[in-house]
Amino acid sequence: MDRDRRQVRTKAPNRNLQAGMILRMRVARKKEIGYFLTDGREEVFLHRNEADGPLESGEEVEVFLYHDHEDRLAATMAMPYVGLDEYGWLEVVDLSSRMGIFLDNGINKHLLVFIDDLPKLRDEWPRPGDRLLVAIKRDPKGRMLAKPVTEAEVGQIAVPADHTMKNKQVVGTVYKVIQAGAFLLTDEDHILFIHRDEMTERLRLGQSVRCRVSFVREDGRLNGSMRERKEVQYGEDAEKLLRYLINRDGAMPYTDDTPADVVREKFDMSKSSFKRALGKLMKERRVEQVDGWTKLIDNQVE
């Protein structure tokens, strides 16, 4: 199945015309700026700009119904990328600090994701060019909107990973951000979680990320890390601390006992990574800890 489109489409039911319907309608009459279409009971307007070409009275066309910019039910011959009660990936094209974000769904009217359905922290909002995994719904007034997918909907898409995935590099897109980290759906449709301690930058909804699979759970879900494997990261973190010490004339007021939040703020690493890097440097007799300070041994300042 196409990763970008999960089809659950049904034919238009026998009821009043509503946004999201795809159905065949007949040209009832022509006007200078467009056409009035009918399903035999109701009429809806198709602007010339929304038609594939000139139409004649009595001609039947397939159209998609939506609410235009003046909130009127209208028709277009352009078909949406993701239809009503479908879910799929749509590109972010604009944002409004008051309303939310807008997605390109293949027609002139962009879909809105309301601000209430977005992360509270603005820097976790998606940016133009990002892609969101959304489901297309109707609001209480019958207008179409997009909502981030639920866990149940992601579960219908996702496939379990096997243990051969460990330590492989994968690319995924963030579909949910929580305080502890971010959930991604990989290009192979595996669910992957990255804890904040394993991020090299704060992730946002809709962001595409390349990372390493650090653990494969029994249920086939993955844990991931944006950091190098520990044996590589130890050296990088130790070098980072050495640079910091050198720039401070060989001493810093941080040791194994420094609180985790201070370590995170000063060095952008977890407390455990900090302690491992310090341990490596002390084992190599490059630094020592004295009276709450870490110092270069023999004043090894470049």
Rank of each mutant, 00 (worst) to 15 (best):
D2S: 10
D2C: 08
R3Y: 07
R9V: 08
N14Y: 15
N16S: 12
Q18L: 11
A28P: 01
A28D: 04
L37G: 02
E43A: 02
V44I: 05
E50K: 07
G53K: 10
G58K: 03
V63T: 12
F64V: 08
D68V: 13
D71I: 12
R72C: 05
R72Y: 07
A74Y: 04
D85M: 09
G88A: 03
W89F: 06
R98D: 09
M99G: 08
D104Y: 05
K109W: 06
F114T: 04
L118S: 11
D139Q: 10
K147T: 12
V149W: 02
A161W: 03
Q169I: 14
V171Y: 03
V171N: 12
Y175F: 11
Q179P: 01
Q179V: 03
A180K: 07
G181P: 09
F183G: 08
E188Y: 01
E188A: 11
I194R: 04
M199Q: 14
C211G: 02
S214K: 08
G220M: 02
L222E: 00
E231I: 04
D256M: 15
D257L: 00
T258G: 00
V262T: 14
V263P: 03
R264C: 05
R264A: 07
E265I: 12
S273R: 12
S273G: 11
S273D: 12
V290T: 14
V290K: 05
T294K: 00
